[in-house]
Design a protein around this nucleic acid. Structure first.
Length: 572
DNA sequence: GCCGTTTTCGGCCCGACTGTTTTCAGTCG
């Protein structure tokens, strides 16, 4: 069983947690967290790097010690250091530590004084009013613990970006109507277009005497006010989503926007650079001594760090700072670059809209083409098309195309990739289509080896152009199937195939790191909505966000091209 | 534990808010 980067990152994060409770040097703890982030965010697998004898110490934040530990994990699947730490401290403390308001210090006290090593034990002690007497604790802390436990049990997880959009829009509109508000923006992972968001960070500037903070905590969907201050307040909405509002002076808007957009790792890296120039950066601006020399705009902040402007989606400390310094940042793709959608369904299978409606909506979005790629026959739950029904659809497409001007419906299919890697429809009909996407819709539980070989074999079919939603995950609902994405990308490159970035907000499959790896490997990506109704065609924005997080430029993406250019590109 | 043309030792990002405290530790972002 090969060790994945995510496993290594997980182990390092656990070590960091354990060390934190042991009161270890906080910078040592941070070193493990940094390493976890570096490894987890890397497209290349540690196992492969070791195989190729590449020096792990070249990676940022990985020194001799951690390189050795990575090697140990890759070779044995575990880390002896973590096992020893877990001998001393129960692993269940992890759950307690995750509770908002409880950090390593408090968790350690709870464990040492009251032997609290689980959420159940914590709840029992809190209900028996034993916690309030501990040093550094009190009545209020005990109540807050019970509240946090209650929220925890009601199950809060990171919200998908699309859901966060729905929740935030009415709230932001409401805040905009507050007296004296000037600027208002959502920062945080929402602005970085991360696929899920843990909380919403709203930033505002206002005139003196604004009532925005009062209005904020009085918003009708507020369940709990976590904190309430002059410049910062936090609430939890009925939906379980935490929302933070920060108010800063207008001269600080850019610095604050940068600060609250994050990511944390990016901010730390930028601060270090600024610090080296004997300047100080905080959410109010860039300072030389007490004098503010920048902060009104984000661009001004970057300028003080001698960096080109870095788009929010890139701010993950995954190489964007080096690229900004060297002026080699990608010219990220925008929604306006997209000239068509290469994956959509109709009523013929499991879609909700007709062929004509889909085509007209796509044209209304400014597209030049839409590939209608319904399901194939083996996907019976979706009324998948057999040869005869597909041929009927092709005839209908010809008829509609004759009537449409400056727009073309492409004949297509989302053909099932069967268990043995063969395609669900014969070559004879696939050959007559404009473009073919192939997807896995069943047998998710094959071994990594067999799943990978299945997909590689499918890509060998000369009629398959695009591999659809390559990992099969559904965000917050279903994990990816086990597949070796590096081999898939190599295979795609060798076979002249392309990969889909499925823009459905529940899929966003490929993820950001896969997109970046694909770009580096020279495999082009189709950003497709997989729309099952006319409305879902608008999900393109989520795909664009993910693509930007994956450093994609217009040239890396298939559907930034006219159909004529695209046709030439996909010919094998 | 990492890192370095100011350093191989001594640094390591910075501020708001809460709750428990009599001046600040802990937590969070």
């Amino acid at each position: 069983m090969p060790v994945h980067n995510a496993d290594i990152a997980d182990i390092f994060n656990r070590v960091a947690e354990m060390l934190e409770m042991e009161d270890a040097n906080p910078f040592r703890v941070r070193a493990y967290r940094n390493a976890a982030r570096t490894v987890g965010g890397l497209s290349k697998s540690m196992a492969d790097m070791l195989d190729a004898d590449e020096a792990l110490t070249d990676l940022p934040g990985i020194g001799k010690d951690l390189a050795g530990k990575i090697q140990e994990i890759v070779e044995t699947g575990t880390l002896s250091q973590l096992e020893e730490l877990e001998q001393e401290t129960p692993t269940e403390l992890h759950d307690v530590l995750k509770l908002p308001g409880l950090g390593p210090k408090k968790v350690k006290t709870l464990y040492n004084e009251l032997k609290i090593d689980s959420l159940d034990a914590l709840e029992k002690a809190a209900k028996e009013k034993k916690i309030r007497d501990l040093d550094g604790f009190g009545k209020k802390t005990e109540e807050n613990i019970l509240k946090a436990l209650k929220r925890e049990s009601s199950g809060t997880q990171r919200l998908r970006l699309a859901v966060a959009e729905q929740v935030s829009k009415p709230l932001v509109d409401y805040l905009k109507r507050s007296k004296g508000v000037k600027d208002i923006a959502i920062a945080g992972s929402f602005r970085r277009r991360k696929e899920t968001v843990g909380d919403l960070d709203i930033l505002a500037t206002c005139k003196k005497g604004s009532t925005i903070m009062d209005r904020f905590v009085r918003y009708e969907d507020v369940d709990t006010v976590v904190s309430r201050g002059k410049t910062r307040s936090s609430v939890i909405l009925d939906s379980g989503l935490q929302v933070d509002l920060r108010v800063v002076p207008q001269v600080s808007y850019g610095a604050a926007l940068h600060y609250f957009t994050g990511s944390k790792a990016h901010n730390i890296a930028i601060r270090k650079i600024v610090q080296k120039k004997n300047l100080k950066l905080n959410e109010y601006g860039v300072y030389r001594g007490k004098k503010r020399i920048a902060g009104k705009t984000e661009a001004g902040v970057f300028k003080q760090a001698d960096l080109a402007y870095i788009e929010p989606e890139l701010r993950e400390d995954r190489g964007e700072i080096k690229a900004a310094r060297e002026d080699t940042l990608p010219e990220l793709i925008t929604r306006g670059d997209i000239r068509g959608d290469l994956h959509a369904h109709t009523k013929a299978t499991d879609g909700k809209s007709t062929l004509k409606e889909m085509a007209e909506s796509a044209q209304a979005l400014g597209y030049e083409y839409l590939a209608v790629s319904d399901h194939s026959r083996s996907l019976t739950v979706a009324k998948g098309l057999d040869v005869k029904r597909l041929e009927e659809q092709m005839t209908e497409i010809d008829r509609l195309n004759e009537k449409m001007t400056d727009f073309r419906i492409l004949k297509s299919i989302e053909v099932d990739i069967l268990e043995d890697g063969s395609l669900d429809l014969p070559d004879g009909v696939l050959r007559r289509l404009d473009i073919v996407t192939g997807s896995v819709h069943g047998k998710f539980d094959l071994s990594r080896k067999r799943q990978t070989e299945r997909v590689l074999r499918a890509m060998e079919n000369p009629h398959l152009h695009i591999l659809g939603h390559a990992t099969g995950r559904l965000i917050n609902e279903r994990a990816s199937y086990d597949i070796d994405m590096e081999r898939v990308l190599e295979g795609a490159k060798e076979r002249g195939c392309f990969l889909e970035l499925n823009a459905h907000p529940q899929r966003l499959d490929l993820n950001d790191i896969h997109c970046k790896t694909a770009r580096e490997a020279g495999v082009k990506i189709a950003i497709s909505t997989d729309a099952h109704s006319v409305h879902e065609l608008e999900n393109m924005r989520f795909g664009i966000g993910q693509a930007r997080r994956g450093w994609l430029e217009p040239a890396d993406v298939l559907n930034t091209r006219s159909w004529n250019d695209l046709k030439k590109l996909i010919e094998k």
